[in-house]
Each structure stands twice: as C-alpha cells, then as structure tokens.
Amino acid sequence: MLLIIWAKNNALNNFFIIKAVQLIFLNGFFILFFYLKIKYICKDKKWDIIFNLLSMKNLLSTIVLSFILILNLCAQSSVEELFYISFDVDAETAKDYRKQIIEKSPGSMYAMYCEGWFKTKSDSAEDALNIANKLVEKYPDFVFSYLLRGNCHFYLKDYAKAMQEYNKVIQLDPKESGGFHNRGVCKYFLEDYRGAITDYDKALELDSNFAKTYYRRGLAKIKIGRIDDGCLDLSKAGEMGFLEAYDEIKKQCR
C-alpha cells in the first residue's frame, strides 16, 4: 500500500508501473486466498502435492522480488523522464532537475551528460570536453553524448568541430531538433546565414515551441536583408518568453 501511495505521489512514475504494483498485490492475495481455500476444502493428498508447488515461501518470494524490480524500474524511469523533461523547462528548473539526476543515478549516461552540462555553464569547457569524450566512449549510441561534445567545441569557439558533432547527432536521430538548431548557430558564426536559416527551419519543423530558434532565425534573416521577416521571428521569440528578443527588436526593427 505504501508503495502504491509513493508511486502515485511521484509525478514522474509511469501509469503502467503503478498498475503493475496494484496487480501484484491483487493477484498475490487472490492466489493466497484461493490456495488456502482449496487446501481447506480438499483433503486428498494429491491436492497437497499440487498446491505445495505454490508454497507460501515461493509466493512471498515472488512478491518481494516483484517489488524490487518495480522499484528499480521506477528509479530508472524517473531519471530518464527527468532528463528529457529538463530540456523543456526554464533554466533554473533545468538546473534543479539535473542536480537530482546526478544524485539519483551517479555514473549513468544521464548523470554524465548533466555533469558536463554544468561544466559548460561554469566556463569549464575543457573539463566538460573530457567528460563528453568519456561519455561518447562509454555510450556511443547515446545521441546526447555528441550533443554535449558539440557544445563543448562550440564554447571553445571551434565551430567546425562542433558542426561535426551535431552532424553525428542528426545522423543518429534525425528528429532531434537540437542537432539542427545548434548546427545552425555554428553556421551563423561562420557567416553562412542562409545555411543557418535552413537548419533553423528544420529545427522549428521538429519543435515549434523553442523560442530561441525563432530568435536565432530572426537574427540570421536580418543579416541577409530580410528585415521584416527577421523582426517577425524576433517578435515571436519575445512573445514566447525569450525576452532578449525585445532588445534586438529595438536595435534592428523599425
């Protein structure tokens, strides 16, 4: 019962895991009740042989092992879901979530990414790059390994190397908008404004709720003389909560 209450109060736990806990309780008690009732009614020894296969010890062991399995699933699910949610919240909430990930799952690929992310935010891009290299080596199929390493190269102003990592992100997961957005930023700093706009377009096609992409695309459009279109993008970014866009509107837009 306590486990069910805990799971319901934890917003990150999957609905089906909660149901699995409930089913184990219900099935366990049903089997126990059925077992005892038949044992009481049927005195024949052949029933003893059959029902001894379903002994109390085995039943309790099954329930306990199921609880342990579900607790592990809940913990893994919480960390993974917390990781992905951290990309869709404000900066302060993201920091809080990523601290929790490091505490809950030290050494996991999610925790390693978060450790590297914190290093980039504290101007320790070299240290972050060391973490990213280890992450890529340990988890080569984890798309965020390359996203982190690309970010490290970006902060070190090596835009060409950063683009190589973002290309890998796109190769591994063509639906990951961050790969296109970040590659677009690199192209912008390399003064390939049209290429940047193409990547921003794709990023927004995949995720139209990322205000910073509208902001970046607006700046790129202004660079190639599409002032009105660029200002519309900046305005959209501001409306979505990216307030820096309003400063650019004052400078760039009439």
Rank of each mutant, 00 (worst) to 15 (best):
R149V: 06
M109G: 10
G241Q: 05
D88E: 05
T213I: 11
G150S: 04
R226I: 04
P174W: 03
I70F: 09
I31R: 01
Y113P: 08
S61E: 11
V143S: 07
Y166G: 02
I49F: 10
F83I: 09
K175E: 12
A125Y: 15
A111G: 12
Y35I: 04
I68P: 03
L190F: 12
I131R: 08
M1R: 14
V185S: 08
I5E: 14
D199P: 12
Y146G: 01
D123E: 15
L172D: 00
A91E: 08
V64Y: 10
A132L: 04
E205W: 01
L190Y: 11
L234M: 13
S122Q: 10
L65N: 14
F83E: 07
K37T: 15
E244N: 13
F180H: 07
A162L: 02
I5P: 09
P140N: 00
D247A: 07
K39P: 02
K46P: 03
L148N: 08
K46H: 05
Y155S: 06
E205F: 00
S235C: 09
S78G: 03
V21R: 01
F25Y: 15
G184M: 06
L172S: 00
A94W: 04
D44E: 13
S122L: 09
K251Y: 05
L232M: 13
V169F: 07
F16T: 10
A237C: 01
